[in-house]
């Protein structure tokens, strides 16, 4: 049976993991590659590295991380953060990333999604969407969400569901959907948002933002109709292991690879 995917996300700054895991027996707990190995050994289905390096001078460090990871970790991984153009994508894919995730650059230049999926194939082009609920919508209307760029700092006026449909038609192979309202709250995914996008497109949708407990992952996959669920802090801080998470979901009847 086709399984749902559990995806830990690692924030990387200047080549080092920002939120640390309390893993013991790691030679270098700040090394993204070492942490990726731990997740891979625990049967994580995929990994996402989010490069939050501010200065472009230090982006070369991320390339080294990607190269080392591709040589040591044999599950798929996606790299996002600061990707501006086709050359950035080519460099990351050649270094060994399986997919790249594009956010701001896709909004500012939708043709990039088209060109990149034409050049490298849809399967490696993920469009990340940062979504925020529109306040202007009254409670008796259906909710709407707006796309934000620049790490959630810039509102764009673009409707999230429409944008999701557009990136699909441009050739994106997958959508990484983050609820800005829920991110960091530990209150669970924005299930209405996740379901709205997942039902609007025929490409896989990864739910992100707000996981505080395992039930939230279950809700994202069932009520939210997500194809994959991403979480960062619940795994980083050792609250739950990947193994425990997958067993929990499997016991609740979700198709999971143990």
């Amino acid at each position: 049976m086709f399984s749902k995917r559990i995806i830990p996300c690692l924030d990387v700054k200047d080549g080092r993991v920002v939120k640390g895991i309390n893993f013991v027996n790691l030679r270098d707990a700040g090394s993204p590659t070492e942490q990726a190995k731990v997740y891979s050994n625990e049967n994580a289905d995929e990994l996402v590295f989010l490069d939050i390096t501010a200065s472009s001078d230090h982006r070369k460090t991320m390339l080294e991380v990607v190269k080392a990871t591709a040589e040591q970790v044999f599950i798929p991984f996606t790299v996002g953060g600061g990707i501006r153009n086709i050359e950035d994508i080519r460099t990351l894919l050649h270094a060994g990333a399986d997919k790249v995730s594009i956010n701001t650059a896709a909004v500012e230049n939708p043709k990039l999604v088209k060109d990149a999926s034409w050049e490298f194939g849809s399967q490696c082009i993920v469009v990340a969407i940062d979504a925020k609920r529109k306040k202007s919508v009254t409670s008796n209307q259906n909710p709407e969400w707006e796309v934000y760029t620049y790490g959630g700092r810039k509102p764009t006026g673009i409707d999230v569901v429409e944008w999701a449909r557009e990136v699909e038609s441009l050739g994106a192979g997958e959508i990484l959907l983050t609820s800005m309202d829920r991110d960091g709250t530990k209150e669970g995914y924005d299930l209405e948002l996740t379901r709205s996008v997942s039902e609007a497109v025929n490409i896989p949708v990864i739910a992100s933002g707000g996981v505080g407990k395992l039930e939230h992952l279950y809700d994202g996959l069932t009520l939210g109709k997500a194809d994959a669920v991403l979480a960062a802090s619940i795994f980083h801080y050792g609250e739950y292991s990947i193994k425990q998470t997958k067993q929990y979901l499997k016991d609740k009847g979700i198709p999971i690879r143990l």
């Binding site: 049976m1 086709f2 399984s3 749902k4 995917r5 289905d45 849809s122 399967q123 192979g173 997958e174 025929n202 490409i203 896989p204 194809d227 994959a228 690879r257």
Partner: peptide
């Protein structure tokens, strides 16, 4: 089904 078929399968 969603296309691409992306993920783990038996």
């Amino acid at each position: 089904v969603k296309v691409p078929h992306m993920g783990w399968n038996q």
